[in-house]
C-alpha cells in the first residue's frame, strides 16, 4: 500500500459483515483519500452497496446484521457500539439510488437538516436554500417556485434536490449509491458533471454498476466480487492494467 501525506477520510480494516448466516463482506480493506472520488464497481450482489451503507452505519436498520473489523472515519472507529450515529451521519451523508425527496415543498426539503439540527433559524433558512440549491445548480431554475412540491420535479431535479438537502447538513463525505441508475443518459451526464464539481469540497464514494461511469468520474476505484475487494487502485490503472484476472475479465466485459 502506498503511503500518503494526508490522513485518509475512510479506512476499513478486515471488515466482515453478515446478514444472518450469509457473509456479505469478506475481509475488506480499503483506504479512501479525502477530496477524491472513489468508485466501487462489481456485478449485482457483490457487496458494494452493503460496503457503502456500512460506512455511515445505515445497515443498522436491517435486522440480524453483524459487523466485525474496523471502519475508521477520520480516524475514529465507527463500528464501536458507543459511536454517536447522529454525529457520524452528519459527517457522512448518503445519496440514494432512487431520488427520494420528502413529500414537502422544495424549500422544506432543503431546510430539513437545518431545522432538525437547529443550525439556522428564521431568515437564515433562505440563505441555506440559496447556497445549497446553487451548489447543485438548481437555484436559477427553481428560485421562483420554492413552495412547490418537490415531487413535481423531474427525476434529475429530484436527485439534485436530494444532494442539496444533504449538503445542508454540511457533511465531509458523500456516499452515493448508484445515484444515476434511474436517469436517462442526458440526466446522467448532468449529474456526473455535478459530482465532479462537488469533489472540490467533498470526499465522494460512489457505487455504480456502470463501468464507464466509474471510469469517467472516479479517481480511485475498487472492484468487488462475491463480498471481496478484489482490487483497489487508481482508476486509470484499474482499467488499463488490471492486476487480478477477475478484474480484467470484468472490465473487459467478459461477465457482470
Amino acid at each position: 500500500m502506498t503511503t500518503s501525506s494526508t490522513s485518509p477520510a475512510i479506512e476499513t480494516r478486515d471488515l466482515n459483515l453478515y446478514y444472518g448466516s450469509f457473509q456479505a463482506l469478506i475481509d475488506v480493506n480499503m483506504v479512501i483519500q479525502p477530496r477524491r472520488i472513489t468508485g466501487l464497481i462489481g456485478p449485482s450482489g457483490c457487496g458494494k452497496s452493503t460496503l457503502l451503507r456500512s460506512l455511515n452505519r445505515m445497515n443498522d436498520l436491517i435486522p440480524n446484521v453483524r459487523v466485525y473489523g474496523e471502519i475508521r472515519v477520520f480516524d475514529h472507529n465507527v463500528c464501536d457500539d458507543k459511536t454517536d450515529l447522529v454525529g457520524l451521519r452528519k459527517r457522512v451523508g448518503m445519496v440514494f439510488q432512487r431520488p427520494n425527496p420528502f413529500p414537502l415543498s422544495i424549500y422544506e426539503n432543503v431546510v430539513f437538516a437545518a431545522r432538525v439540527h437547529k443550525t439556522a433559524k428564521g431568515s437564515d433558512f433562505d440563505d441555506v436554500v440559496e447556497r445549497c440549491l446553487s451548489s447543485v445548480l438548481l437555484w436559477e431554475d427553481l428560485k421562483d417556485r420554492l413552495g412547490k412540491s418537490a415531487l413535481e420535479l423531474s427525476l434529475e431535479q429530484q436527485q439534485r434536490l436530494c444532494i442539496a438537502r444533504l449538503l445542508a447538513v454540511m457533511p465531509d463525505i458523500l456516499l452515493m449509491d448508484e445515484p444515476c441508475s434511474a436517469m436517462d443518459p442526458a440526466s446522467t451526464q448532468g449529474l456526473e458533471e455535478l459530482i465532479a464539481r462537488l469533489k472540490e469540497e467533498y470526499t465522494i464514494v460512489i457505487v455504480t454498476h456502470n463501468m464507464q461511469q466509474a471510469a469517467r468520474v472516479s479517481d480511485d476505484c475498487g472492484f468487488m466480487l462475491l463480498g471481496e475487494m478484489v482490487e483497489f487502485r487508481l482508476t486509470d490503472e484499474m482499467f488499463k492494467i488490471p492486476q487480478d484476472e477477475r478484474t480484467r475479465d470484468y472490465v473487459t466485459g467478459r461477465y457482470g
Binding site: M58, L61, L85, R89, K90, G93, A113, V116, L166
Partner: peptide, 10 residues
C-alpha cells in the same frame, strides 16, 4: 422517508 431522514443525521 425514514432512511433518508436518519441518513441526514436526524
Amino acid at each position: 422517508f425514514r432512511e433518508v431522514s436518519l441518513s441526514l443525521g436526524a
